[in-house]
Design a protein around this nucleic acid. Structure first.
Lengths: 335, 335
DNA sequence: CTTAGCACTTGTCAACTAGAAGTGCTAATT
DNA sequence: AATTAGCACTTCTAGTTGACAAGTGCTAAG
């Protein structure tokens, strides 16, 4: 679409585009001129000629020669960028979300998850939380809890309060050797950013324990595994089966395709822009399916950062979802 | 079905039933007499009259008057109880599973999960792991790691090596009060079975801290939450979207129904018999859908117990799945 | 007891039809 | 110059029809 088109549209054309988007979002059926002319005070013939113009601009499409119109991807884009007005969150929805965020028993990460679960419930879309735990965290301490002769628990804690633990098999390694290693780690690399720990472990700790621990290779691997676990992102996807409610997905093969992408490819789907805004990817711009839209945003607190996203049909309630995400982002960041 | 039917079936009838089950499992299409009479050395007319008898017994069904036969639920049941022979696990499948169980880096619970993930991959069914962590575990120790003035991490460890942790907000409670409480817990209820901790916490700890901790209600809640987390079962469901590959689920509404049940109702679906065998629930016996079958078994090690299950179509490769589950159960219990 | 033969039933698929929805164009109207 | 009424035309949808395939049940003969 030419950028200039934005300025060429008359008010009535804008109104028609907006009405078609809203109607199609609601009904999932191509919108005919009759429906529009009931709202606008003019005849269906007028609307038809305007619709033809909008189609020339690439903002509308037909499914067949004599069908009503549906918005094209550019049409949605124009709507989102120029026509959409923030829609207030309904009292009911607001209440449900407030119940989560005002609950002091809940940790932040639980709040995030639960609030998006609610969004999935009320909108029937799919929601995603990508938490990047490791960001900005540094190693706080490593704890050791012996269980019996051959096993113990290693517990690693970051300064921001994230915890990882792993049960390890230590038969053949003396308790003394292990304790020394942990002391070494606590002395040498506490305060190191989590992302850099693997390197430090290899180049600073490994050479030393190599000297006095018989099974140093195994011991090194144990700690290496625990630390790399940390840098893994946490992924939560909620309301996946909502996709099956959409009329555009009455074809089982298509559903399977999308569900498999959501299972395997979430990072790719949700991580893109690095700005602080609400980002909207429509149709081909998503990495899922031409009929889908992804709306996402980053959140960032002093302890944690991540991404929240809503995945739904291209025919999405853009205004509602944008507002919900904005509201949740705000609540996360002020919690 | 009358129990006596078991003894009334002739060898040929058994053979026909078996062939129909196997053929229908493979092809998902009603099986006609022609196909059967190619294997059996007799005419299609003979097979037809035998099939009519089997239908009278309630072991076979027709989808319409002139269709081939499909097994009824009783037919599957008869097959499973009387006709099915253990089928050896293929070398390829065996290899994949061995790779998991012989990997010493992996914790038991990871092995279980990964092995069932493999079963989902190779069979295209859905697999479920229900782990009941708390069983037979007793409290080993409670650790405290202060993060800053207003928050700390509570870490709880059981004798079998399970760990739960929670970040808590402690502003308004003095460090001293918290430390005393933890010491109290470590002194008084270490060694208590996890299931009984809530009670002990309420009747033994709460009255004491009530005396010297100002915010004792809040502090009590914190520990209560951490401990109850323990008794929660862990649930893993793998290969859910495999259901979409089944021809009996080309109807999207049906798929949604099943997926929603798998999301919300897993306990109900998978927990039933309390014996140590492989249990098979066919069609109506499952709590999912008349077209589904659940095969499950319990596993029990000295540290952990739980349930593993495969959920698939009624038209399931019973012999294969039973063998895989048996094999995995054995490997878990001897790990 | 088994089998060949045949009438009969049902499902599937493609072709066709009538009606509904909605368009684009033209000519008349404001 | 913009709007509208009118109408021919296109496509989709749902229902009907008919031919064919798959498979059964029954009967009578081997």
């Amino acid at each position: 679409m030419l950028k200039e088109v934005i300025y060429l549209l008359t008010d009535r054309q804008k109104e028609i585009l907006k009405l078609i988007v809203m109607e199609y979002v609601k009904g999932a059926k191509p919108v005919g001129s009759n429906l529009i002319c009931e709202t606008l005070k003019c005849s269906s013939a007028t609307v038809r000629s305007e619709m033809a113009t909008l189609e020339e601009f690439g903002l509308l499409e037909k499914t067949h020669t004599s069908s009503g119109r549906i918005p094209s991807e550019e049409g949605y884009r124009y709507y989102v960028n120029n026509l959409m007005k923030p829609k207030e969150i309904s009292g009911e929805d607001m209440l449900k979300l407030q119940l989560i965020f005002s609950n002091n028993q809940l940790e932040l990460s639980d709040c995030i998850k639960k609030s998006l679960e609610i969004v999935s419930d009320i909108t029937n879309y799919t929601s995603v939380v990508l938490g990047a735990k490791s960001h900005d965290n540094t190693l706080k301490e490593v704890n050791l809890v012996p269980l019996d002769e051959s096993s113990m628990i290693v517990i690693v804690i970051t300064d921001k309060g994230f915890v990882e633990h792993k049960k390890i098999d230590v038969h053949g390694i003396s308790l003394d050797e292990i304790k020394k290693t942990v002391t070494l780690i606590n002395n040498m690399i506490v305060g190191t950013p989590i992302d850099e720990i693997s390197a430090k472990l290899e180049f600073e700790i490994k050479p030393i324990i190599g000297r006095y621990v018989k099974e140093h290779e195994r011991l090194y691997n144990v700690f290496y595994n625990v630390f790399t676990n940390f840098t893994n992102k946490s992924v939560d996807v909620m309301g996946k089966s909502n996709i099956l409610k959409l009329p555009e997905f009455s074809n089982v093969d298509k559903v399977r395709d999308v569900l498999e992408k959501l299972d395997e490819n979430i990072d790719n789907i949700v991580e893109e822009d690095d700005d602080n805004n609400i980002n909207i990817y429509i149709g081909k711009e998503t990495n899922i399916d031409d009929d889908m839209t992804v709306i996402r945003t980053k959140y960032k607190t002093d302890k944690e950062e991540g991404t929240i996203a809503i995945v739904g049909p291209k025919r999405m309630e853009y205004d509602r979802v944008v507002n919900l995400l904005e509201y949740i982002k705000e609540n996360i960041e002020n919690k």
